[in-house]
Structures are given as C-alpha cells and as structure tokens.
Amino acid sequence: MLDFIQQLVSGIALGCVYGLIALGFVLIYKATEVVNFAQGDLMMMGGFFVFTFIGLLGLDYWLGFLFAVCGMAVFGMATERVLVRPILGYPQFSIVMATIGLGYFLRSIAGMIWGTDDLKIDTPFSNGVFKIGDLVLAHDKLSVIVATVILCAVLYAFFNYTRMGTAMRATSENMLAAYYMGIPVKRVVSLIWAISAAVAATAGVLLAPITFIHSNVGLALGLKAFPAAVLGGFGSIPGALVGGLIIGVIETLAGFYLPQGWKDVAPYIVLLVVLLVRPQGLFGPSMRKKV
C-alpha cells in the first residue's frame, strides 16, 4: 500500500510537469486556435536561458529565474511576430507544421550553442526532501507541483475575470468579430504567446534540477504533454492540469505494475480510449456543427 501511495505521489509530481507544459499549449490554443508543437522546445530554451544566467553568469537563482522568464516572454512574442502572424488564418495544419519546423530549428540551434551534454544548475530546491511518515517527496518535485497549481489558478482567474482575459476568449471565438468590438487582436495574440512562452520557461527552470537541461528534453516531454492537453480538452486550463495528472499517474503506475514497455504506451492507449468516447476531451466544450 505504501508502494502504491509513493508511486501515486511521484505520478502526481510527473503529472504536474506535463500539466505545466500542457498549460502552454492550452493558452495559445485558447486564444488563437493555433497548436504550438514547439512548446516543449520553448521549455527547453527556458532551461538553457536559466543555465546561462545562473550557471554561466553566476546570478542569484531567483534573479536568473526572473530574467529567464522575461527573456522567454520576449522570445515568444518575437516568434509570434515572425512565424505565426503571417500565416494566422490559414489552415490549421500548416501552422502545426510551421511550429514543428520551429521545434526542429530550436533543438539544433540549442545543441549547437550550448553543446549536447547534460547541463545542471544548483537550485534552492535541489537535494532537499520532505517526509510524511514513510512517504518521501523531494523538494524539487514539490516545487513543480506547487508552481503548477498556482499558475493554473492565476491563469484561470486571468482568463475568466479580467478584461484582457475576456478579450482573449473573444478573439479565440471569432477573430473578425473581436476586431469589430475594438479588441486589439494583434496585441492580444502577441501577449498570449508571451505568456505561453513564459509558462514554458517556468516549467523549464523548475525541471532543470530534475531532468537536467539538454536539447532533446523538450521533444520528449512535449510529446507527453501534448496528449495531456488533448485528454483534458484542448482549450481548458483545469483540463490541462487534470489531463497532465492522469497521464503522469497512469505512466508511473503502468511502469510499476505492468510489464516493461507498457509505461510509454499506456498514456496513449488511455488517450485513444478517451477520444473514442469523448472526442472533445474531458473538459472540452461539446462540439456542435453549424452551417
């Protein structure tokens, strides 16, 4: 039983990681209906940024964290301006391909700049553990869980209760109508990319002590976070968290209880089953066809 709880807890920690990356997918999708396949690679870039600030320039952890997040926000805005804005409004699949291309590009550029070795940084969360009875929880994992929950709550409130959040939802619903209502659509879209890249950077910084920083970390985690976002229903912020938790817990438990090989496949099987029953994901709005 203790084994089970321990596995469950580490599954939840893993799930929060996926949830945090999935949050980035969901934000961009929610505002612009663009699916950003390079989200994992933005996270990887965040990790490298923080390594540059803390590991190479020797800044304080929190200052480096702040700089990395701000730097990635600017980077996200630039990406939107250069790559996404010219093709916004064209078929969704071409935008998906463009972001896949961006992912390829970022991975190799990061590999060329920072090398292909695993990098690591010292953080205030490294090496500490938290104990409840026999249950052990490392501080770095706990920090991910806490950050994910806080970010989810803040962003949920932002989308539902602020003027800007409402403008973003309106933009996603119908861009033309949003223009007519006087919403600065271009600025909204830029901002959403900045927020999404900042969330990705946060994930990258928090993951730095757990997974280390290397150029392929984004692809591996992004490919798991993506089903999480779909499972929760693309476009739902709590959905991203729940989807991430489900994928994380299933993966961990399958790795523990099922024969080897199930660990990597189980999340996808669950995903396919859920999509068969509810094509719009768990928390997605029901889709209705209009002519």
Binding site: L83, S94, I95, A98, I100, L102, Y104, R107, S108, I109
Partner: peptide
Amino acid sequence: SAAGLKGAIYGLIIMMFILFEP
C-alpha cells in the same frame, strides 16, 4: 560539420515553405 546543423536546416526549410511558398 556541427552536429544538428541538418535539423536546423530542415526546420528552416519547413518554416520558409509554409511562410513564403504555401
């Protein structure tokens, strides 16, 4: 001969085609 140059060029090709030669 840097490792990964091929990936960067692949990525650039995809992005360029979608942007300029849809």
